[in-house]
Nucleic acid binder design. Structure first.
Length: 502
RNA sequence: GGUUCUGUGGCCGAGUGGCUAGGCAAAGCUCUGCAAAAGCUUCUACAGCAGUUCGAAUCUGCUCGGAACCUCCA
């Protein structure tokens, strides 16, 4: 079956074909490490983790490049041309690179919590200044950039005359040039005068004296523009043309649009085959972001320490929450929605564990053909769903429909022989494949160590004896006290007793 | 103001012409010493109006609401 990917550039689903057979080059815009990651950041990295995992399991050798933006950008363009990272560094009286390191570590920690597979290469912007300067030189040589006062700008007008600037983001060049819109006035006031046109973007910025982060360049001391960073690193590690470029929808313009322009001039071809953009996580319908002051940091989410949270949420719950919607749809955050996801994930995971423990006779033929066919149909649909632009929500929906079948077999409502042994085996394989390998979910239960296991067996034993003697006061006391401690006792249909940490 | 997207049951959320999405919540039943867990059943919605069609949540138009981008942003 063929994988189809929605290409933001053409605005349609296209059959995926890699440029180099058997290999995929994927670039995803990474975090700006000037602050702590929040829930919104979780979405792209989880989304593209799924893409990475799925392509890998499709047999591709994926080179997944995700950068670290540690050079910083303008806080408020046109006013204080101050570097974001260095500004905060001054406030906190820290060496900029110390700050960068701190938030990079925190980001890596969060990725680990989410069980995201590490990218193949994680280049930093500051580590690729030379490449960026080289690229800018090429663009100047080609006549598509100009220098003013130690800064270099990309000539959008000239580019747009022969290229489709604005196609990715659905922008019309005339609109961009039209100064009639709201804030253009204020932006045009100061440094902006050095641009030939307001639509032009910076490739290199001359550094004001207070700037801590600065590098020597052919145009004087300064620092690179934001867009050139991604173009330079993507080109270096993935080549002039590569397969997939991912990122949040909010980066479409101007970031990705500008990347296309720069790379096209520099490398004489469009850089990306498939552009993929994930939608935003909203909170009360509004995008989560610093400017909206509605940020929930990942550390707050995992600890429950935030006014909007009723409790702490396990990273896997957040991951599952994100997978329950399609990556191109907006996803509205709410404590209630996360609680629902938590319960749902727990139920599905338990069914998965039950499934893994079923004893299967592979020679067994199905005695309930109708059910058997239904199960097979649902299992076979899973790949179809994933191939259809990564419809993780549909995969999960089918699994939820299969969960009662699994539980019924365990409880004896449905005979094990109802399904063919081969069907059960396939179900085990498919559940493991999607839940563990592709969705990257793990158990939420911390490891039950041997001591605890022994203590629990003892308690369960005592409770069994009390029940046998109809001493319910004792049996209930054990059950209720354990419950208070976060341990749930489950009496199974066959008389055995299981327990779980909540 | 411009461009683009969007509006699904109590809540979250799939779904782009005909077939019960799914989850959470709620109610009833089964199981159980009682619970929990699990199973079964019930709750059948698509902002409004008009149109196209044998048939529309799905296409078209209008109205109303919401969002993103146009400025750092996942």
């Amino acid at each position: 079956m063929a994988l189809k990917i929605y290409n933001s550039y053409t605005r349609q689903k296209e059959v995926f074909q890699s440029i180099t057979p058997g290999h995929v080059g994927m670039y995803v815009c990474g975090p700006t490490v000037s602050g702590e990651s929040h829930l919104g950041h979780a979405r792209p990295y989880i989304t593209f983790d799924i893409v990475n995992r799925y392509l890998t399991h499709k047999g591709y050798k994926v080179r997944y490049v995700r950068n670290i933006t540690d050079a910083g950008h303008f806080e408020e363009e046109g006013r204080e041309a101050e570097d974001k990272v260095s500004k905060k560094a001054l406030l906190e009286k820290l060496e900029p690179m110390e700050l960068v390191q701190k938030y990079t570590n925190l980001f890596h920690w969060a990725m680990l919590q989410f069980n995201c597979v590490e990218p193949s290469i994680e280049p930093t912007a500051t580590g690729h200044i030379v490449e960026q300067i080289n690229m800018i030189n090429k663009i100047i040589a080609a006549g598509y950039a100009y220098e003013t006062n130690g800064s270099v700008y990309f000539d959008v007008i000239k580019y747009a005359a022969t290229h489709d600037y604005g196609k990715l983001s659905g922008r019309v060049i005339e609109d961009l040039l039209d100064a009639g819109s709201r804030e253009v006035l204020s932006r045009e006031l100061e440094g902006q005068r050095e641009k030939r046109n307001s639509a032009d973007f910076a490739l290199w910025k001359s550094a004001a004296p207070e700037h801590i982060m600065r590098w020597t360049s052919p145009w004087g001391e300064g620092f690179p523009g934001w867009h050139i960073e991604c173009s330079a690193m993507a080109t270096k590690y993935l080549g002039a043309e590569f397969d997939i470029h991912g990122g949040g929808m909010d980066l479409q313009f101007p970031h990705h649009e500008s990347e296309i322009a720069q790379s096209t001039i520099c490398n004489h071809q469009a850089p990306v085959r498939y552009w993929m953009h994930n939608n935003m996580i909203t909170i009360n319908g509004k995008k989560m972001g610093k400017s909206y002051n509605n940020v929930i940091k990942l550390t707050e989410l995992f600890s429950g320490n935030h006014p909007l949270l009723t409790q702490a949420f396990h990273p896997m719950v957040v991951r599952f929450f994100i997978l329950q919607s399609h990556y191109r749809s907006p996803l509205d955050f709410g404590s209630e929605a996360l609680v629902a996801s938590e319960k749902a994930l727990k139920r599905l995971w338990e069914a998965f564990e039950v499934l893994g423990k079923l004893e299967i006779d592979n020679e067994q033929l199905a005695t309930d053909n109708e059910l058997n066919d239904k199960v097979l149909k649902m299992l076979n649909e899973l790949e179809e769903f994933m191939d259809d632009d990564f419809s993780t929500a549909k995969v999960l929906a089918n699994m939820f429909e299969l969960a009662p079948v699994i539980n019924s077999i365990k409880d004896g409502h449905v005979k094990t022989t109802a399904l063919a042994g081969s069907t059960l085996t396939l179900m085990q394989q498919q559940f493991t494949f999607y839940l563990v390998d592709i969705f990257g979910l793990t158990s939420m239960v911390s490891d039950k160590n041997n001591t605890l296991q022994g203590v629990m067996e003892l308690l369960i034993d005592i409770r069994k004896e009390s029940k046998a003697k109809k001493d319910y006061a004792t049996s209930d006391k054990i059950r209720n006290q354990l419950n208070t401690l976060g341990i749930a006792i489950k009496d199974e249909k066959d008389g055995s007793v299981n327990w779980d940490l909540n």
